[in-house]
């Protein structure tokens, strides 16, 4: 009997620790599918962040390093500079990348480091228990903004894709989402494009993925999708913000 569907080789055959309705599983799978399709598993090194995806290394079947909070782009820089033949990607959340790791990601992007970043934006700190992130929406309640994010105090949510796209150095910067099936195919295309640019030695590449966190948003998975679509997508516009061709 012909096998029509199977787990990507790059994805480990084991259950994850992610909550019901969390989108990390989908994004992991897309990354694994792309790595399989490009045939690069044997020369790929992933870098796990600090946050919910800290254990991402358990779910992939190739070399991995575990970073400190926010420092994955610096580690990726170190690997890529000494081993340009390896394919390197960081997998980071919004607390990790947009707060404590803002310096590292901006400078890596600006140097045009030839690695790929998968940036999962769910507008909240997940692992530490739902605190406010730089990406938290105005008025959004979190455990450290119990009355809702006050933009007078905390400013507006940081739009990483737009911010990085403003750098003069060529790069591939895209924002996608996986909250509904209709978006997933496009997200995968963007991830594949990001890895392809790296394989061609062309530029830094980052795909921001707008995601849900039902647990810390205090919503059911279905409600979380609706909330993300109504609140996040109008602010976090989807699409390619920069390509090396239109720099």
């Amino acid at each position: 009997m012909a096998k029509l569907f199977s787990k990507p080789e790059a994805l480990a055959d084991q259950p994850t620790h992610y909550c019901p309705g969390c989108t990390h599983g989908v994004i992991h799978r897309l990354v694994a599918e792309v790595i399989d399709e490009l045939g690069i598993r044997g020369r790929t090194v992933g870098i796990a962040p600090v946050g919910c995806a800290v254990l991402a290394y358990n779910y992939f079947t190739f070399d991995f390093q575990e970073a400190a909070h926010g420092r994955a782009p610096a580690m990726a820089t170190g690997i890529k500079r000494v081993r340009p033949d390896l394919i390197v990607f960081t997998y980071q959340g919004d607390g990790d990348l947009a707060s404590i790791g803002m310096g590292e990601i901006v400078h890596a992007a600006n140097r045009g480091e030839k690695f790929t970043t998968i940036f999962v934006n769910n507008a909240i700190y997940g692992m530490t228990g739902g605190q406010m992130a730089p990406t938290t929406m105005p008025g959004q309640r979190t455990t450290t903004s119990p009355f809702g994010r006050d933009t007078e105090e905390s400013g507006m949510p940081v739009r990483i894709a737009e911010l990085l796209a403003s750098l003069a150095t060529p790069g591939y910067i895209s924002r996608q989402t996986v909250i509904k099936p209709k978006y997933i195919k496009k997200a995968k295309q963007a991830i594949k494009r990001a890895f392809t640019y790296q394989m061609e030695g062309k530029c830094f590449s980052l795909v921001e993925v707008v995601s849900t966190c039902p647990t810390n948003w205090g919503l059911t998975p279905v409600e979380a999708v609706k909330w993300a679509e109504e609140n996040m997508l109008p602010y976090y516009r989807l699409g390619d913000f920069k390509t090396p061709e239109n720099n």
Binding site: V45, A68, M75, T77, G78, I79, R81, V82, R83, H107
Partner: peptide
């Protein structure tokens, strides 16, 4: 060889970590 001026000592320590972990 490789020479890179990092953006901070913090970042440099992780460039060292990444490179060392990759066997360099």
């Amino acid at each position: 060889g490789v020479f890179l001026q990092g953006e901070s000592e913090v970042a440099v320590s992780y460039m060292i970590f990444g490179a060392a972990a990759a066997g360099a």
